[in-house]
Design a binder for these strands. Structure first.
Lengths: 260, 260
DNA sequence: TCCCTTCTGTGTATTGAGTAAACTGTTTAT
DNA sequence: ATAAACAGTTTACTCAATACACAGAAGGGA
């Protein structure tokens, strides 16, 4: 199959879906898209996304920067493929979980783990809904988890979208700490401590009474995971909504999009 | 007050808190941090964050690029101040709302509106928890909304954090559409239509049955707002959790952070 | 077989970003 | 008045991404 059959498909997407044409003649290829992507991921994992330059990737493989352009048409392509690679497909554990709630929770945790392992993923620019094999697989898994519920298709999508957002947010917040930790050369605990001290100096009980109270209660030094608390609250809410539907309640009226 | 009293405070943060030293001697300043930030915001609003270069900002003000460095120590500083400026403080409507639920909903909507008006904000890199006046004010408003509830301080922070994340996610998703729309020169509807057609071609009922079903149900062409659905489910969950506490239920056991 | 086309990886050059350093001229404190 | 402190400019350097042209390698057709 050549990419001529999918004319509007961007080169990056074509590669992601594995429908890019491969040449017949000319010298043997010494590299491959896979090796390039893997090298780039290794750099990003170790030194952050900003360390991923075409030159750095090429040099890691022992080639010149320009040679990469035979395989990926632009850096954006490479970034998309990196994302695709580390995201992969949902693990078995999601399907094995019993009931929609456990499945969604597992899905959430699996996504979070990806973001924790490859924190640069959440810093990639979002360009629309990139319709890739892996994003489709995750979406499929989420929708499937809810397929036995009385939720409408729109409601199911909303829940899955929200869980993905929560996982991303989890990753985003932790990535912030990690990047600051790397930038300053301090450990995570030291960053937390430094931050707590900053708060102490800048947040007055006068201007920010509730925040001050929370600081004094030690919330910024806490060991408990706030994200896992709220994901349970979300699932609680979905559960009681489903219970309502099963008891004969109508679906909530659709709300329109917020306007600026 | 000079910034000597806050030695570890980064220049950008010092500016944000308004505690940077202002010089006594030398020629009159022709620019100001405010004008620079405003010019940068105007560019970002109109042409996206990538159009914000030191040169572009300077030229908009009629100066040379290097002159900006008298006011902001680096581009990162400028970005932080831009974020600070557009975020501002929560509107009156948040405080005026009755009850924690309405307040949090209003807070959510206010944040979303900021992200819709200035979609580049969600694309800014997150560096730890930037402790700025505006982020503190929003946090304060959220915690205050929950101050009459039996939630622990940690639980309150978790809820507020989650709502902020949801608002950001809302902005992120819509920004993706907007940026794609600008990049391709198509209208939002055309992007949606093009995306729907891509889905149609690539998503087979074979590989992605639930997703296929959702597509056929038209979820990607729907006019209803999925984010406002799930934020209500989250609030439902918090509400029933609070009701449980008031009925004597214990607090949920703290969960540890997920490990990669 | 030979040559021509197609492809590979390389070298070089261009463009545009951020910013360091040195410079010119201006204002204010002493 | 003079020196110190400052404002904005000039110039130059670094590091990205990537366009373009090339020399050589592999296969197809004569």
């Amino acid at each position: 199959m050549t990419d001529e059959e999918l004319p509007e498909l961007a080169r990056g997407l074509a590669l992601a879906w594995g429908v890019a044409a491969s040449p017949q003649r000319g010298p043997k290829r010494e590299m491959s898209v896979e090796r390039i992507v893997d090298a780039a991921i290794e750099i990003a994992d170790g030194e952050g996304l900003s360390a991923v330059s075409m030159a750095a990737v090429a040099s890691k493989l022992g080639f010149t920067p320009m040679s990469l352009y035979r395989y990926v048409s632009a850096k954006d392509d490479l970034l998309l493929l990196m994302q695709e690679q580390v995201t992969g497909v949902p693990p078995e554990s999601v399907r094995k979980a019993k009931g929609w709630r456990a499945r969604l929770r597992t899905l959430f945790e699996a996504q979070v783990r990806i973001y924790l392992r490859h924190s640069w993923v959440v810093t990639l620019p979002i360009t629309g809904a990139p319709i890739t094999p892996s994003s489709s697989a995750w979406l499929e898994a989420g929708l499937k988890a809810l397929s036995d519920t009385p939720l409408t298709h729109e409601e199911r999508l909303a829940v899955v979208l929200s869980i993905t957002g929560d996982a991303r947010w989890y990753g985003t917040v932790l990535t912030g700490y990690a990047s600051q930790s790397r930038a300053s050369g301090l450990t995570a605990d030291e960053v937390t401590a430094q931050e707590a001290s900053l708060y102490d100096r800048l947040i007055t009980a006068d201007q920010f009474p509730s925040l001050r109270e929370a600081i004094d209660a030690g919330v910024f030094l806490s060991e408990s995971d706030p994200f896992r608390f709220t994901i349970e609250r979300l699932l609680d809410g979905v559960e009681s909504y489903i219970a309502g539907l099963e008891a004969g309640a109508p679906h909530e009226a659709a709300k329109t999009w917020l306007q600026p």
